[in-house]
Amino acid sequence: MKNIITIAKKEWRNYFSSPVGYVFAGLLLVVVNWLFFSNFFIGGQADLNPYWSNFSLILSLFVPAISMNLIAEEKKNSTWEVLLSLPINEKELVLGKFLGCALYLLFTILLSLPVIITVYVLGKPDVGLIIGGFVGILLLSLSYLSVGIFVSSLSNQAIVGFLGSSVILLVNSLMGQEILLSRVPSFAKDFIGGLSVNFRSANFSSGAISIGDLVFFISWIIIFITLTIISLKSRNK
């Protein structure tokens, strides 16, 4: 546990040791809110659903950008060779990196709170819906991050990490969109939609919090983290 925290701390500091971490967080905030408010005043309704769905779309580019280097850079610079010669194991390394990046992600998402409060003051939406949407976006972003760290572990090129995970995430979010789902036979619809992180997260923001969705998110994260650990362990094949 101590190793996980040590690695997480370093990762967390990494984001703030250069302007990049601040710029990314600022950019995310501006884009998400701009998209929201441009809708908000047109619709004139204090409805948060468009906000969450924009947010998740943007996260499918943002999370790959902040996670592309998590492991690829260690590989490229061979620093993972130092790390893995220390009394720590692959699991601690991956969990530490995941935790550090997750905290940064949480931080950027929390920056959106003022917007939500504004909407709340203006429109008095349902508090349950706000909490649901918030939890949904958190689970979604952690799921995205688990994909990002996995793809980052597959090569030593950050750009491969970025493109690989954004493609996976965009395809996955497409799987939850009506555009695609309306074209598949109905028996496959639930199945395909059910595999989409976006689709599940939308359930949360519409207030339908279910154990099934929760289990889905947790399994998703565990699977990708496990794949990352396996990918690191198989370095000498």
Partner: peptide, 18 residues
């Protein structure tokens, strides 16, 4: 961990966090 804690390793090309 037991084995690794007995070892000090300087890899080829001396990788460091710049």
């Amino acid at each position: 961990e037991k084995h690794k804690s007995r070892i000090g390793y300087l890899p080829e090309n001396n990788p460091l966090y710049m």
